[in-house]
Design a binder for these strands. Structure first.
Lengths: 211, 211
DNA sequence: ACTTATTACTTGAATGGTCAAGTAAGTAAT
DNA sequence: ATTACTTACTTGACCATTCAAGTAATAAGT
């Protein structure tokens, strides 16, 4: 972290926090500027518009995905499959820490921002892709423990699906149960894949012995 | 449908459509009133505020869940498990018909509306509950085909999780693939449950023969 | 080393438009 | 004469955005 923060950085960070906790539309420029300790003139020196700021916010999320989200998980957890569930547990902690007001900032924007702003949705999609790509990489590390036909892209996308759906329901219900239930079902799904792969390996082995 | 619509009904229907396609914050009173062919005076005769209107909109969704969403499915599809996937296919059709701009109106509100408006989130949760209760009822109808230990509440909630997560990603990616992938994974999950139950039944049967 | 020019950024008031909401007068049916 | 509802105008706050003027720092010229 630099000793001082540039005005531009302060604005982006303020917007990250506010869009995250209130959404894009519900956040006013006044609020952003106040939080960032900046004037509107400075803002429009660095950004073309509020929409333009949203672009930078999504870039910021993408750039911070690896260092903020993944690096601690890779340091703390070795097993690739458990890394995926550690990621999900991270979201669980966020839900609890925010007293159920948490929602995935990217997912929220995906539903809030109108589709006509294509470049925004391209960046949202890029964030989703980076997220699932990292999950996919974990799956790749556990390749030998999964059935040979497993489609990693599809399965990693499914992990995101479960996270987003679980987070949404936890928020509405003010309860962690829907999230936990969803993750438990996902865990069952994984367990069956792992078991199927183990059985298949055993069969191949005994087949090898016969030949 | 009644021959004439009351002003109140017209306002609610206009709001349903606009909140659905633009979200709550992004929709202005002017827009609602224009679409409903009403004046602001009439509006504030029937509703206390825009927030109050949102309450009625969520009531409307809850009241229309059975007749609009489920009744056609029950008429067209007999198999209880297939009814669940027919429901999901209905969302698939909506995504395609709206050129990927579709998002579940309830899910969208779940993320957009601040948690401090508890009664709104209570109604959102009630909508989710009614949705999953109907899925749960289908699972109940297929009880004999599912493993005896299956938790129907958890599984039906998982179906909603998959729907919401799939819809969200389809929107961001402007592609039906993430939705289809998610549903395919869910189908695998169900298939394994059905197979496990069938095997267990077979074992019980042969056990019965032995005794 | 001192002045001048240029660039980079900040200040904060002002703009015009839109927001949800309020109101007073009016109509029509009971 | 009362209730139910409509009409159209109005309010004041807030919205994103603009702009002219100001400051501070660096670079160039002598």
């Amino acid at each position: 972290m630099p000793a001082t923060q540039s005005t531009r950085e302060r604005i982006i960070l303020a917007a990250v926090e506010l869009f995250y906790s209130q959404g894009y539309e519900a956040t006013g420029m006044t609020q952003i500027l106040k939080k960032a300790n900046a004037n509107s003139g400075s803002f429009y020196f660095f950004f073309k518009s509020k929409q333009d700021l949203l672009d930078s916010v999504l870039d910021w999320y993408l750039a911070n995905l690896e260092p903020v989200l993944w690096r601690p998980i890779y340091a703390a957890t070795q097993d690739p499959i458990e890394r995926i569930f550690a990621l999900l547990d991270g979201y669980r902690q966020k839900i609890l820490a925010t007293d159920f007001s948490f929602s995935c900032p990217i997912g929220r924007l995906a539903l809030e921002i109108g589709l006509e702003r294509q470049n925004v949705h391209d960046k949202i999609a890029a964030n989703f892709d980076a997220w699932t790509a990292a999950v996919r990489s974990c799956l790749g590390d556990a390749e030998h423990r999964l059935p040979s036909g497993t489609c990693f892209d599809e399965l990693s996308q499914f992990v995101l699906t479960v996270m987003e759906g679980g987070v949404m329901q936890a928020r509405a219900h003010r309860s962690i149960a829907p999230f936990d239930n969803s993750v438990r079902q996902l865990r069952q799904h994984f367990d069956r894949l792992l078991i199927a792969a183990a059985e298949s390996n055993r069969n191949n082995q005994s087949l090898g012995e016969k030949l």
